[in-house]
Nucleic acid binder design. Structure first.
Length: 193
DNA sequence: CAAGAGATCATCT
DNA sequence: GATGATCTCTTGA
């Protein structure tokens, strides 16, 4: 079952936790790719110094101020894209970063896009995931409740969750310590233990 | 295995 | 002009 918009309108931490064990589906002319979400991070509001929107409302962050259930895709370090899903109410800038998935369908396609044969290296990180799923700027602002990129609930029971500080946000002062990174306990497909 | 460098560009100052 | 919600490769133990 495809997840519908009210799910994404919940508090960001709730969305980040509940996305674990759900399935990211990407339809593309080259084929279908599906992965089980095993790692997420929450970026919450104008005060969160790790959140891009804490610098204010700009052309880049505008999407995070919009309606929940849309994709926020940005380009980073000159090489990679990162996929977020906008959460909470309009005008409150917040999103969940999808950090890693366990490859499930379209594995050969992922291998060719990633230029590696190793299952554990296909989507174990936000940049890798976007490469494996062919996610780029053209999907910025896309509706996650539509049909080219969405999340499915396949009836899996809630997984055991670990929480910890977010990755790569050392510049964020006291906000860097917030335990807003979530992963499925014991998963071999996370970006790091 | 850990640590470090380099790659490369959109965005904001 | 600086920097970043990253990744890969190389070096050295």
């Amino acid at each position: 079952m495809k997840i519908i918009r009210p799910f994404y309108e919940q508090p960001t931490v709730e969305v980040a936790r509940q996305l674990l064990g759900r399935y990211l589906v990407r339809k593309h002319p080259d084929g279908l790719t599906v992965g089980r979400i095993v790692e997420t991070e929450a970026y919450i509001g104008p005060d969160d110094k790790a959140c891009h929107a804490s610098r204010g409302r700009t052309a880049r962050t505008e999407i995070m101020f919009g309606t929940a259930g849309h994709a926020y895709v940005y380009f980073i370090y000159g090489f990679y894209y990162c996929l977020n899903i906008v959460t909470e109410e309009k005008d409150f800038p917040s999103a969940v970063l999808i950090r890693a998935v366990e490859p499930l369908e379209g594995i050969e396609l992922m291998k060719s896009r990633r230029r590696t044969e190793k299952l554990h290296n296909l989507a174990s990180g936000p940049g890798k995931l976007c490469q494996a799923f062919a996610i780029d700027r053209s999907l910025n602002g896309a509706d996650i409740c539509d049909k080219t990129l969405y999340v499915e609930d396949r009836g899996e029971p809630p997984p055991k969750i670990l929480a910890g500080p977010r990755i790569g946000v050392d510049y964020a002062g006291e906000w860097k310590n917030k335990p807003w990174r979530f992963l499925i306990r014991g998963s071999e497909f996370v970006s790091r233990p």
